[in-house]
Simulated assay, not measured.
Amino acid sequence: MTAGAYRPPRDRVWFLRSRAYAVFVARELTSVFVAWTIAYLLLLIAAVTGGTLQEFAVLAARPWMIALNVLALAATTFHAVTFLNLAPKATVVRLDGWRVPDFMIQGGNHTAWLLVSAVLAWVVLR
């Protein structure tokens, strides 16, 4: 009998041992809901341009679809907020040798996000 190489047992929940890892994995998993949101918007555009908006509205009004889209909104919001909060770690901004503080970069990102959202809401809801 030959001895095989040692294989340590796998820890399938390694990310739950650290809050930072758990948030990282959660953010990565929310990418599925970001993809769903994009697919849903493409279906909406196809329904508007293809003349099948009435059928799409019937599908969109189903309780399971509403629940899925509410979950997708929450997941996409979490994804966006955590992504924007990471920007100062990925981007160092210097002005005349002075490093712009992290909170200013985060604040600028969140402000831009809110402004773009407000403009889009104004265009869609008017």
Rank of each mutant, 00 (worst) to 15 (best):
D96M: 12
A46P: 13
T76W: 04
N85W: 11
V58S: 12
T91S: 13
L29Y: 09
H110P: 08
V100D: 03
A112C: 07
A60Y: 01
S18I: 01
A35T: 12
M65D: 03
L68A: 06
H79K: 07
L114C: 09
L114M: 14
G107L: 04
V119L: 05
V25G: 04
N109T: 08
N69W: 00
W113D: 12
N69H: 05
A20Q: 13
Q54A: 15
L114E: 08
V32C: 13
F78S: 09
F15M: 04
F56Y: 06
A39W: 00
D102W: 01
F103P: 10
L44N: 06
A90F: 01
W98R: 15
L125A: 09
Q54V: 15
T111M: 14
R99G: 07
A121V: 06
R94E: 14
V23Y: 08
T82A: 05
V25Y: 02
L43I: 00
R17V: 05
A61D: 06
T77H: 05
A75P: 02
W14N: 04
M65N: 04
V58I: 15
V92I: 11
G50H: 00
N85H: 12
A47Y: 00
A47K: 03
G108D: 03
K89A: 14
P88C: 00
L84N: 06
T111H: 11
I38Q: 09
Q54F: 11
T52A: 09
A39P: 08
R94W: 09
W36T: 12
V92S: 09
T77D: 10
V81C: 05
P101H: 02
V25W: 03
P9D: 03
L16N: 10
A75Y: 00
Q54T: 15
M104V: 02
L16T: 07
A47E: 09
A22D: 12
F83E: 11
R62V: 02
P63Y: 00
E28W: 07
V23H: 09
L43D: 11
F56Q: 04
L115C: 07
V13H: 11
R19L: 12
L44E: 07
T30W: 04
V92E: 12
E55L: 08
H79S: 09
R62W: 01
V48L: 09
A74S: 12
T52G: 10
W64P: 07
V70E: 09
R19A: 15
V13T: 10
L59H: 02
P101A: 02
V58M: 12
A118M: 08
S31L: 06
L16Y: 08
P101L: 02
Y21V: 13
I105Q: 05
A3Q: 14
L86G: 11
S18D: 15
V92D: 10
A90T: 08
M104A: 15
N69M: 07
A47T: 05
F24V: 13
L86R: 13
A87L: 11
L71P: 08
F78T: 05
V25R: 01
T76Y: 05
T2H: 14
P88Q: 02
R99W: 06
